[in-house]
């Protein structure tokens, strides 16, 4: 038997944890450090481990001269809309799959989940001509709709698992009390399902916010551009490699998601593990 309480075991475990931590956090640290370095220090042959003379210049430039505020605004609009859309669809679909019995229920669910098996790039190839046909190319609505493919299948499945755990007796009690199906869903089931709904909202938001491929392809005009392709095109294009600006802007772009998770992580963890332990 492996004794986990010995000093050697502890040292090994802590060592491994530190190693993993280093791998995960080094890029974040490097982004932060680079964003605070002046250009001269940034482009030295031998990189400095930390900024010798920290400066906020890159942040100032990104916020005032670049398009960052507009990009962030666009991303926020698109991500909130698509997360709302996805969470709403997933909630209704998940409830239907979990609590109603009808012909084709399981095949439909499998079919939906199978969308997740295709590489997103492949799906983009089919979405593109469809959007051209429907005049959805270069529209925010188009981009919002396209994000269904990222999050909806898994979101539906997550919320389906949660609803499967909601006791039928609760629904039956409400039915016996005289509530209609929709009423039961809206006044009994939804109020007790906030954590999983917040979870799928966040999940879906994260996908949209972090997306590069779809937004880069489906949005062409500058004024609708979202943050990920925006940063790429502004700071790291064919003619330009402003690493300091890119790092500062990236950090600022990541901030909303990080803050969101910090505030809502209680919900998120609760949602992901809901039903795991009775």
């Amino acid at each position: 038997m492996l004794d986990l309480s010995t000093t050697t075991a502890k040292v090994v475990f802590i060592g491994i944890a530190l190693l993993i931590g280093f791998f995960l956090f080094f890029p974040v640290y490097w982004t932060l450090a680079s964003s605070l370095k002046a250009d001269a220090e940034l482009y030295q042959i031998t990189p400095t481990p930390w900024p010798k003379a920290p400066t906020l210049d890159h942040y100032r430039t990104a916020l005032t001269e670049g398009q960052l505020p507009k990009l962030l605004g666009n991303s926020l609009l698109v991500s909130i809309s698509s997360a709302t859309f996805n969470a709403t669809l997933a909630t209704y679909a998940g409830y239907s799959f979990a609590k109603y019995r009808y012909f084709g229920r399981k095949p439909v669910m499998m079919f939906m989940l199978s969308a997740q098996m295709f590489p997103f790039g492949l799906l983009l190839i089919t979405i593109y001509p469809m959007f051209v046909e429907w005049n959805l190319l270069d529209t925010r609505l188009g981009l919002i709709l396209s994000y269904i493919v990222f999050a909806l299948p898994v979101a539906t499945y997550m919320i389906y698992s949660y609803f499967s755990q909601v006791p039928n007796e609760l629904i039956e009690a409400a039915r016996a009390d005289g509530a209609s199906d929709l009423r039961i869903f809206h006044t009994i089931v939804l109020p007790i399902s906030i954590p999983p709904i917040v979870t799928v909202f966040l999940y879906s938001f994260m996908w949209s916010w972090n997306d590069l491929l779809y937004s880069l392809t489906l949005i062409v005009s500058d004024e609708k551009r979202t943050v990920a392709p925006g940063l790429l095109l502004t700071y790291l294009n064919e003619t330009n490699a402003d690493w300091g600006g890119a790092m500062a802007a990236s950090l600022m772009a990541a901030t909303p998601v990080v803050l969101g998770f910090m505030f809502l992580q209680r919900f998120f963890i609760q949602g992901v593990t809901a039903g795991a332990v009775k």
């Binding site: 006791p167 007796e169 609760l170 039956e172 009690a173 409400a174 016996a176 009994i188 007790i192």
Partner: peptide, 9 residues
């Protein structure tokens, strides 16, 4: 009806 699990909201 009173349910076995009470089914309180």
């Amino acid at each position: 009806m009173v349910f076995q699990t009470y089914a309180l909201y």
